[in-house]
């Protein structure tokens, strides 16, 4: 990704003088101390979630004699009312939250990029109608339909991915469409058309590599939005189902017993908010680095 071979392919000398837009963006990003700090923080959380549980008591190991205990040397973040180690539960829950964040973002990415590229490339009436639909959907409280879907049908992770992905593609579609709208007037696209290349080939081979920058930026910003939605659904009892845990589930459980055991709310909420915080700041940093406009 960072090399961007597709973009300056054939212009190797340009890359050596490091004037490639990818290089410049990377340098601007590296100069942004806040965003870089957040990148490290995120890396720490992800590594912790992936490898941490191996060194901790199992997230489902109960110790009823211990019950809910505050943080101690044995259990760094304390235990819940069943005596389960909270740190282990937070880290394992993080796996699920991050997984949902990634997969549902991927769904949103595919829908948004396809929709936006088609609208931008086809242009004219089609474009107008397609973007009008996006405008209309923007003002709609989708959570209502997701709640309906998740209560009515059997709850599964797959449904969760699809439902969340189906909501969060709108901004992506707008941005990609805006980019394609200007790109398709450029010579290399006109040349491809003149050579009689098929539309799918032009879209995938010529336009897609050129919208990658903004797409990466907005993917970073979509992940926290998606994770937020997952947590909301899990909080309402409609997302991830116990005994599986995600940060949303843990926060929900913690909120129920916060009166007596406040740490059960604070630590999962801390993990969750910290992750959202760093993802948002990384996304902001990338946006500044690539200089992408969010409006229109």
């Amino acid at each position: 990704m960072t090399r961007g071979g597709d973009i300056d392919g054939g212009f190797g000398s340009a890359r050596m003088r490091s004037t490639s837009p990818w290089r410049n963006a990377w340098r601007r990003m590296a100069a942004n101390r806040l965003a870089c700090g957040c990148l490290w923080l995120l890396l720490l959380v992800v590594t912790g979630c992936l490898f941490g549980p191996a060194f901790l008591p199992g997230p489902d190991d109960q110790n009823l004699a211990l019950g809910a205990s505050p943080p101690s040397t044995g259990h760094w973040l304390g235990t819940d009312s069943l005596g389960r180690d909270l740190l282990a539960r937070c880290l394992v829950g993080g796996r699920l939250s991050l997984l949902v964040g990634l997969v549902a973002t991927l769904v949103a990415l595919v829908i948004g990029v396809t929709y936006g590229m088609l609208a931008g490339y086809l242009g004219g009436r089609t474009d107008a109608v397609m973007m009008r639909v996006v405008d209309a959907l923007y003002g709609f409280p989708f959570l209502i339909f997701v709640i309906l879907m998740t209560t009515l049908f059997e709850r599964s992770l797959l449904l969760l991915f699809v439902a969340i992905g189906a909501i969060e593609w709108l901004t992506m579609a707008r941005i990609v469409r805006g980019q394609v709208l200007t790109l398709r007037e450029m010579e290399f696209v006109v040349a491809a058309e003149a050579l009689g290349q098929a539309t799918p080939r032009i879209l995938l081979g010529h336009l897609l590599p050129n919208v990658l920058g903004p797409v990466i930026v907005y993917t970073t910003l979509t992940v926290p939005a998606v994770m937020l939605l997952e947590a909301v659904l899990s909080f309402l009892g409609l997302g991830v189902q116990p005994p599986d845990a995600s940060w949303g589930v843990l926060i929900s459980e913690g909120a129920q017993s916060m009166e007596s055991f406040p740490w059960l709310l604070f630590f999962p909420a801390g993990f969750f908010s910290l992750t959202l915080f760093s993802l948002n700041l990384i996304g902001d940093g990338l946006r500044d680095a690539f200089d992408v406009r969010s409006e229109k």
Partner: peptide, 13 residues
Amino acid sequence: CLPSFVLGPILAL
């Protein structure tokens, strides 16, 4: 970054 279902219980607490 502090969603309502985190902020709400904290404020209530």
